[in-house]
Amino acid sequence: MATSHLKIDGILGLITIRLKDDNFLKWRYQLESVLDGYDLFGHFDGSNIAPPKFAILDEEGVTSELTAAYKDWMQVDKALLSVLIATLSDDALEYVIGCKTVHDAWMNLTDHYATVSRARINHLKTELQTA
C-alpha cells in the first residue's frame, strides 16, 4: 500500500481545473486521465471494489475484526475522496456532502453535471439555430 500513498500524494498537483457549473467535461477528462495514469480510477468507477470487511474464521465464522485489506482499501479510498473534494468549487461540494466513498461522490457529480452539460449543449444548439 505504500505505493498507493505515494501515488495519491502527487495527484493533486497534477489536477489544475476545479469543477464549476460550466467546465464538467474538461474537469472530468483531466481527472480521469490522471487517475488512469496512476491506475486509481477503479475506485471512482466502482471496478475496484472493497475487499471483505470482516475476517472469516473457520471455527468462528464471521468475526467483528476488520480485515487488513479492507482497512488499506478504505484508507486509499478516503485519500482519493479528499483529492476529489479538493478539486471542487464551493457550489460543486454540495453534491458530495455525506458520501462515504469516492465512488458515491463520483456518481453524484456525474449524475448532476452530465445532466447540466446536456442541457447546456441543447441550449447552445438552440441559440445557434435561432441566430
Results as ranks from 00 to 15, higher is better:
V62K: 14
N108D: 06
A119H: 13
I11R: 00
L12V: 11
Y113P: 00
L80A: 01
P51D: 02
G13F: 07
V62H: 12
S33Y: 12
L40S: 05
L81A: 00
W106I: 12
N48A: 07
T16P: 00
R118E: 15
G10S: 07
H123M: 12
A68V: 08
L109V: 06
V76S: 08
F44T: 05
L57W: 03
T63W: 09
S82M: 00
N23C: 06
K78T: 01
T63H: 02
H103K: 06
A2R: 14
K71W: 06
V116Y: 10
V83E: 01
S117H: 14
Q75P: 05
D90Y: 04
A79M: 08
D22Y: 10
S89M: 10
L66C: 14
F54S: 03
C99N: 07
V62Y: 14
D111P: 04
D21P: 06
H43S: 07
A92K: 06
L80Y: 04
E60H: 14
D104Y: 00
A68M: 07
L6I: 10
T115D: 13
L57Q: 10
A114P: 04
I49H: 06
T101E: 07
S82D: 01
A92Q: 04
S117L: 09
S47W: 14
D22R: 09
A79I: 03
D104A: 06
D36T: 03
A2L: 14
V96M: 00
K125L: 15
V83C: 00
D21L: 09
T110E: 11
S82K: 11
A119L: 10
E59G: 06
I8M: 11
F54N: 02
A55F: 05
H112Y: 15
V76A: 01
F41Y: 14
H123L: 10
H5S: 07
K100A: 15
R120Q: 14
D22T: 11
M1A: 09
T63Y: 08
Y29A: 11
L57K: 13
S64G: 11
D36F: 10
G42C: 03
L88H: 05
L128W: 13
I56Q: 02
L84T: 03
H123K: 10
L80W: 00
L128C: 12
N108Y: 07
D45I: 02
G98D: 03
T130P: 04
Q75T: 15
Q30K: 04
L81K: 02
V96P: 08
A86C: 00
L93Q: 01
D36H: 12
I49M: 14
L124M: 09
C99S: 13
